Simulated scan of single mutants.
Amino acid sequence: MSVIYILLTISIIVAIGFFVAFIIAVRNGQFDDSYTPSVRMLFEDELVKEKTEKTILTKND
């Protein structure tokens, strides 16, 4: 029974360690996405073209 208490204590300590590491990473901007906005502008024209083509096709029908 004492082994369960030891394993439970160790798992809680490890979980708290991972949570603290996650909070530190978020505060340091580790998960900020700086790549997608720069690439998104390259693909927006294709989305606009598809929408205009669809509206042109539906208006001509």
Rank of each mutant, 00 (worst) to 15 (best):
T36E: 03
S2M: 13
D61N: 09
T52P: 00
N28L: 11
D32V: 03
K54Y: 05
K59S: 04
Q30E: 15
L8F: 14
I16V: 14
T55M: 13
D33S: 01
I13Y: 06
L8K: 10
T55F: 04
K51P: 00
R40P: 02
F31D: 02
N60K: 14
L42H: 05
T52S: 03
Y35C: 02
I6A: 12
I16N: 07
K49I: 03
E53G: 05
D32N: 04
V14E: 03
S11L: 10
V3L: 12
F31S: 01
P37R: 01
T52E: 08
V20P: 02
E44G: 03
L57C: 02
I6P: 01
I23A: 10
I16E: 04
L47T: 11
E46R: 10
L8D: 07
T36W: 10
K54C: 01
S34H: 07
M41C: 06
N28D: 06
R40K: 03
A21S: 14
Q30K: 12
I23H: 09
I24G: 03
E46N: 05
F31C: 01
V39F: 04
F22T: 15
P37S: 00
G17L: 02
V48M: 04
M41D: 15
M41S: 15
T55G: 04
F31M: 03
V39S: 01
M41Y: 14
V20K: 10
K59Y: 02
Y35P: 00
L7C: 10
T36F: 05
S2H: 07
S11F: 15
R27K: 15
I6D: 06
D61G: 11
I12K: 08
F31P: 00
V48C: 03
N60H: 09
L47W: 08
F19W: 14
R27S: 08
E44V: 11
D61Q: 14
S34E: 05
V14R: 01
F22E: 12
D45M: 06
E50G: 05
V14D: 01
I16D: 03
V14Q: 05
I6N: 15
L47P: 01
E44K: 08
D33F: 00
Y5P: 08
D61C: 07
M1Y: 13
K54R: 08
V48E: 09
I10K: 15
T36L: 06
M1F: 13
I10L: 13
I24M: 04
L57S: 07
I56W: 02
S38F: 10
Y35I: 14
S2D: 10
